[in-house]
């Protein structure tokens, strides 16, 4: 039955955020299976597919999140930021470790296939530089960015989330995403240089 009065009922309780989106796990399982197949078969095309697809997604997402989405989140009002983060961050929890694993697990094998790590190969120094860049990004992403991401989602799931903790962790997320985004430019330069030597 309809009523003509303005609805003054209290806001519905906040929906629980699924920190790890379970619907994405079958996709992760398929991709992991393909990476295992690529490594075990030692065939060049599956290895290259994993490395290039994973690396392209990793670089693009880092650049886009760090330099486009991050500043947008930073400029949002707290409720809008919370709403966006609740939908966006669980996806990052599942996508980023997957693309990083795809890229790193196959990278060394491709270098051994191509002989690009041999002492007399011109690409060697570039690849070592790439490993250093990836290493720095890994420490920032795994040591700071990802814990901040999970903390935000965990805090949001509480009956009374602490806005100070969420704000501090979001700031940490946005800054570290910006740093890794800028570092990915180095990856682009190195990888295109290696491909054109």
């Amino acid at each position: 039955m309809h009523t003509s009065t303005i609805d003054a009922s209290p806001a519905p309780p906040a929906r629980k955020i699924q920190i790890v989106p379970l619907a994405g796990l079958p996709v992760v399982a398929v991709l992991l299976g393909f990476v295992i197949f690529a490594i075990a078969s030692n065939k060049f095309w599956p290895l290259m597919l994993c490395h290039v697809a994973g690396g392209a997604l990793w670089t693009s997402i880092d650049l886009f999140v760090g330099l486009a989405i991050g500043p947008i989140i930073g400029g949002m009002s707290p409720p809008a930021r919370a709403e966006f983060s609740a939908k966006f961050m669980p996806k990052m929890v599942i996508i980023m470790p997957m693309v990083v694993t795809m890229t790193l697990a196959t990278g060394l094998q491709i270098a051994l296939h191509l002989g690009t790590l041999n002492l007399n190969n011109g690409a060697r120094n570039w690849l070592v530089a790439s490993m250093i860049v990836v290493g720095i990004m890994a420490v920032i992403a795994l040591g700071v960015l990802e814990p901040a991401n999970i903390t935000v989602l965990w805090e949001m799931n509480k009956p009374n989330p602490n806005p100070e903790i969420i704000g501090r962790m979001m700031k940490r997320f946005v800054y570290t995403a910006g740093i890794t985004g800028i570092m990915q430019i180095a990856t682009l330069i190195i990888m295109t240089r290696v491909a054109t030597l």
Partner: peptide, 24 residues
């Protein structure tokens, strides 16, 4: 509660990298 799932995820990731080293 948080650590056990993260541990599972990173055991899988580390296992893949280990597999790549063994395979090579």
């Amino acid at each position: 509660r948080v650590g056990r799932w993260a541990l599972l995820a990173y055991i899988i990731a580390a296992g893949m990298i280990e597999f790549a080293f063994v395979r090579n």
